[in-house]
Amino acid sequence: MKHFYGAIGILGFVTVLGGISPAICTQPSPILIVQNSAEDLFNSALAKSEAGDIQGAIADYTEAIRLNPNYAKAYNKRGIIHGRNLKDYPATKADFDRAIEINPNYGDAYYNRARVREFLEDKDGAIADYHKAAELYQKDGNTNDYQDAIKHLEMLQE
Rank of each mutant, 00 (worst) to 15 (best):
M1Y: 04
F4S: 11
G6P: 15
G6T: 14
A7F: 14
A7M: 15
L11S: 14
V14E: 13
T15Q: 10
V16N: 04
G18Q: 13
A23N: 09
I24T: 14
C25W: 07
C25I: 12
C25L: 10
C25H: 03
T26I: 13
P28Y: 11
P28A: 09
P30R: 02
P30K: 01
I31W: 09
I33P: 01
V34S: 06
V34D: 14
N36L: 06
N36E: 11
N36F: 05
E39W: 06
E39H: 13
L41I: 00
F42K: 07
F42M: 09
A45P: 00
A45Q: 00
A45M: 00
L46H: 13
K48N: 04
G52H: 11
I54S: 06
Q55I: 15
G56P: 12
A57I: 12
A57H: 10
I58H: 01
I58C: 01
A59C: 04
D60Q: 03
D60I: 09
Y61A: 07
E63S: 04
A64Q: 11
I65T: 03
N70M: 02
N70A: 02
K73Y: 09
Y75D: 00
N76H: 01
R78I: 01
R78H: 01
G79F: 14
G79I: 12
I81A: 03
I81S: 08
I81K: 07
H82T: 05
N85K: 14
D88S: 01
D88W: 05
A91I: 05
A91Y: 08
T92W: 01
T92N: 02
D97Q: 11
I100A: 06
E101H: 06
I102T: 07
P104I: 03
P104S: 10
N105Y: 15
N105L: 09
N105M: 08
D108S: 12
A109T: 10
Y110A: 04
Y110P: 06
N112R: 07
A114S: 06
R115F: 11
R115T: 10
R117W: 00
E118R: 14
E121P: 01
K123A: 06
A126L: 05
I127T: 12
D129F: 01
Y130H: 04
Y130F: 14
H131N: 15
K132T: 14
A134P: 00
A134V: 09
L136S: 08
L136K: 02
Y137Q: 07
Q138P: 03
D140Y: 13
N144E: 14
N144H: 09
D145T: 12
Y146W: 08
Q147T: 09
A149D: 08
I150W: 04
H152I: 03
L153Q: 02
L153H: 06
E154N: 14
